[in-house]
Simulated scan of single mutants.
Amino acid sequence: MDMKKRISLELRDRNPAEVQQLVLDHSLCAVGQLEALSDFSSLQELSLVGVGLSSLSNMPSLPKLHTLSAGGNLLSGGLDSLNEKCPNLKTLNLKDNKIKELSSIQTLQNLKNLRSLDLRGCEVSALPGYRDAIFTLLPALSRLDGAQQDPEEQDSEGEPDDDEEAGPPEDDDDDDDNDDVDEDDSSEGEEDEVGLSYLMKEGIQDEEDDGDYVEEEDEEEEEEEEEEDGDVQGEKRKREAEDDGDDDDDE
């Protein structure tokens, strides 16, 4: 599908001057067809991925455009036209193109609002000192190939704050509860000790009382035995006296 037909489909009966976002990826861009975008005066985001572009020299004036994606094309230069046609660009995606020289990137210096540039897959990204050189050429740039200028700054963005690392505050109520439990346990222990001592004392007293009772029984038994012995001896003496009386009578 060529680009003109694709543009007609994307419009959907809308007024081109009111369109803010337009995606024309993988349509066929013939020579001069970029000029058809001149009616999109309010366009802010434009995607031209894999449309066969070899130059951006025919880019129409898009003063409100802040994001341009032109990856997967045949661009090797001619980026200087963006300075005039798209002066408010903030994000420029040129990955997987044929850009080989740093001089091609140097022409973007007049894009004062450019903050993000993607050149992954381009030969220029394999040059020694490429990353430092790009940031030197474009001092306003803060992001290159999806990474922040300062790797430490990027790492710090993913680190949690001290407040986030800190765990939840300790619950003082739990400590109070534990103290209460310890006090209860100690008081119960004291009660058990007192109760045990009391029982032991009671047991000792019972044993002493039982001992006294046994001794009293033994004494009573001995007294009874003595009384019985006394009675027996009295009877014996009485009988002997009677026998002696009988013998005297016989004489």
Rank of each mutant, 00 (worst) to 15 (best):
M1N: 08
K4C: 05
I7E: 04
S8P: 00
E10Q: 14
R12L: 13
R14F: 02
N15K: 11
P16M: 08
A17R: 10
E18T: 13
Q20H: 08
Q21S: 14
V23D: 14
L24Q: 01
L28D: 12
L28Q: 12
V31Y: 03
A36P: 00
L37C: 06
L37R: 09
L37N: 06
L43Q: 11
Q44K: 13
E45Q: 15
L46C: 13
G50W: 01
G52T: 08
S54K: 06
S54M: 02
S57H: 02
N58Y: 00
S61G: 07
L62H: 08
K64D: 14
S76A: 15
S81W: 00
S81A: 14
L82P: 05
E84G: 01
K85L: 04
P87C: 03
N88P: 00
N88V: 00
L89D: 00
L89S: 03
L89V: 05
L92V: 03
L92R: 02
L94V: 02
L94P: 02
N97H: 07
N97W: 01
I99L: 14
I99T: 06
E101C: 03
Q106L: 10
Q106P: 01
Q109D: 07
R115T: 12
L117A: 04
D118S: 15
R120D: 10
C122I: 04
E123M: 07
E123G: 08
L127D: 02
P128N: 11
G129V: 09
G129E: 10
I134M: 08
L137W: 03
L137A: 14
L141C: 03
S142W: 01
L144I: 03
A147Q: 13
Q148P: 00
Q148D: 13
Q149M: 12
D150P: 04
E152W: 08
Q154N: 08
D155R: 12
P160D: 12
D162S: 12
E164A: 15
A166H: 04
E170T: 12
E170N: 06
E170R: 13
D173A: 13
D173P: 01
D173R: 12
D173Q: 13
D176S: 10
D177W: 10
D180S: 10
D180W: 09
D180M: 11
V181N: 13
V181M: 14
D182R: 14
E183C: 09
D184H: 04
E191N: 06
V194A: 13
V194Q: 08
G195P: 00
L196Q: 11
L199D: 07
M200G: 09
G203P: 00
I204F: 08
Q205I: 05
E207T: 09
D210H: 07
V214E: 12
E215R: 09
D218Y: 04
D218P: 00
E221F: 10
E221C: 08
E222G: 02
E223M: 11
E223P: 03
E225Q: 09
E226K: 11
E226P: 01
D229H: 05
G230A: 14
E235W: 09
K236C: 03
R237V: 11
A241S: 09
E242F: 06
D243R: 14
D243Q: 12
D244S: 11
D247H: 08
D250I: 13
